[in-house]
């Protein structure tokens, strides 16, 4: 039989994504929360919009930890069935934002969450804890999984800023291995530029594929070309605090 859900290899084929996307290009990790809320409100039905408004009010009024499970954490859990799978990521990011979840809260919610909730936490990192590397263990956890939705979500702007060079290179290679489109990798061009070690890894992977008689992913050539650009100005400040290979 044919495998029902395998797409043919085409240069355009984006083989992963987050969840079902809203269709207007809104990416929860890249869209400012106010804009995300406005666009989400436009697309939700009346009951779902009312539910979300109340959930966000509750989260803003009662952030922090209350009892065995805080109200905003309950809302986070049920967001998928209230707003629909296509809007769950955005709704969850907004709830986390309204609750001002810090690195500790994000860590708890991530490790107690379903795969969908974990993905939303990853999308929320650049909005909530952009500057500190305290949430890096969540990114590293997601990158260890084989769930391509989590791998893709892990490689947003937070990872682009904080992931060290070794882990970042392996993440890029893992995308190629598992079919995660490199469009999901935030800041790909900047981080790949002049990265000779990444170029070596990509070349070795291409040779391995060729030796096995298998196609080399189109994305590999694209990122390989990026590595050949001249290095950017040296990393400065917090932009690349871990990116020092000896």
């Amino acid at each position: 039989m044919t495998r029902p859900h395998v797409t043919p290899a085409t240069p355009e084929a984006d083989t992963t994504g987050g969840p079902a996307t809203p269709g207007d290009g809104t990416t929860p990790a890249l869209t400012p929360p106010a804009e995300l809320r406005r666009r989400l409100a436009d697309r939700l039905g009346g009951a779902a919009r009312a539910w979300l408004d109340q959930a966000l009010d509750e989260a803003a009024t009662h952030p922090g930890t209350h009892g065995p499970i805080s109200v905003w954490e309950l809302r986070l859990a049920e967001a998928g069935r209230r707003c629909g799978p296509a809007h769950a990521d955005a709704a969850r990011v907004l709830i986390l934002h309204a609750a001002h979840a810090d690195a500790d809260a994000l860590t708890r919610v991530y490790f107690q969450g379903t795969a969908d909730e974990r993905r939303a936490v990853l999308h929320a990192l650049p909005h909530l804890v952009p500057d500190g590397p305290g949430a890096l263990p969540l990114v590293e956890d997601a990158l260890r999984t084989n769930d391509t939705r989590l791998v893709a979500a892990a490689l947003g702007p937070y990872a682009a800023r904080h992931l060290d060079a070794h882990a970042w290179r392996h993440a890029v290679l893992k995308c190629l291995f598992t079919g995660v489109g490199l469009d999901h990798v935030a800041d790909l061009a900047r981080r790949a530029r002049g990265d000779g070690e990444l170029a070596r890894m990509l070349g070795d992977y291409a040779a391995e594929r060729t030796a096995a008689g298998r196609a080399v992913p189109e994305d590999l050539h694209r990122v390989l070309a990026l590595t050949e650009s001249a290095p950017a100005t040296p990393p400065h400040g917090t932009d690349d605090p871990h990116g020092k290979e000896s």
Partner: peptide, 21 residues
Amino acid sequence: THEGNSILRGAPRDEPQPAGA
């Protein structure tokens, strides 16, 4: 969102391959 997955472990060579098989 799941098509390019990490379970197929390489598409058979006589079938279309997922991108980045």
